[in-house]
Design a binder for these strands. Structure first.
Lengths: 150, 150
DNA sequence: CTGATTATTGCAAGGCGTTGCAGTAGCAAT
DNA sequence: ATTGCTACTGCAACGCCTTGCAATAATCAG
């Protein structure tokens, strides 16, 4: 099976990372990885499947989701949930971040480390709780929608 | 159709609130309301349907979800999403709160106003974003699981 | 009480995601 | 190149939730 050396970081060498863990490098996984390597920012599960199907019409959803699980264990993607609860995958290595969703206009913004840092610290101090920032979803109203509704 | 006067607050008089809005008071809605009136804290959609079926085996999921939408507009329930993205309904008027989920043990805690206040203020100051606390889900590791994993 | 109006219901189908299982095919060793 | 171990795949079925539509029934005016 083809190596992944020519893929952009952090994907080069994924094949060998799989093998070193006793995992197998299959054509289906290659498809998913290639699609992810050409994606930045966010993808929903459904979008990813659609893009995989463009390369390989035989793509099966369960295989894609299972591959995503593995990639998440390897730290190459992280998943969260959008405002409607649907899965959303962040392709690394963007900086880890959470999301802000506007319930009115549907807009979405990232919560970066600078903004999240103090919050994460607050939870750690209060309960010893370790926040997984990439899994944080905050829904509300953005400034303009909030202003509009008054 | 029977009135709702004898239900505990905030449910007494729901029937009339429906009618005043031009909405209709049906047996199906009565079932949902009665079940909610006997529930406190959280319910997932599936749990609620199951409890409704205990009273009325004919209960239809879509009707329940549509009723919940109406109740949410009336401010009687709020919905959020659990760690897995599934819907979870908060029965009001508990204090508005968000949720903390431990990805390891599955535990769940509430984020009360005292803890959330500073965070909400931070978002408002930074972007003018108005956080909807009941729709906030923070996933991570609780103190004991975090300790255990080291 | 009767009829007209129209909000709701029930149903069927669909979308997203998960799971169990039997057959397939990577991979390492020979 | 062959073999054996077992990690994957494909499939089918399921769970949760949403949506469109025709039939039903709650409400209101007379």
């Amino acid at each position: 099976m083809s190596p992944t050396d020519q893929l952009p970081e952090p994907w080069s060498g994924v094949r060998d990372r799989f093998r070193r863990r006793g995992l197998r490098w299959t054509p289906q996984r290659r498809t998913v990885v290639e699609v992810l390597a050409g994606t930045d920012g966010h993808v929903t599960g459904a979008e990813l499947i659609e893009r995989c199907r463009a390369r390989d019409p035989q793509t099966i959803p369960s295989t894609v989701y299972r591959t995503l699980d593995v990639l998440e264990e390897l730290g190459l993607v992280r998943h969260g949930h959008g405002a409607d609860g649907r899965e959303e995958f962040h392709v690394s290595p963007g900086t880890e971040h959470g999301h802000l969703y506007c319930a009115d206009c549907g807009g979405s913004w990232e919560i970066g480390a600078s903004q999240a840092g103090p919050i994460i610290d607050a939870f750690r101090r209060a309960d010893g709780f370790e926040v997984d920032l990439s899994h944080v979803t905050v829904v509300g109203r953005c400034a303009s929608c909030a202003a509009a509704s008054r």
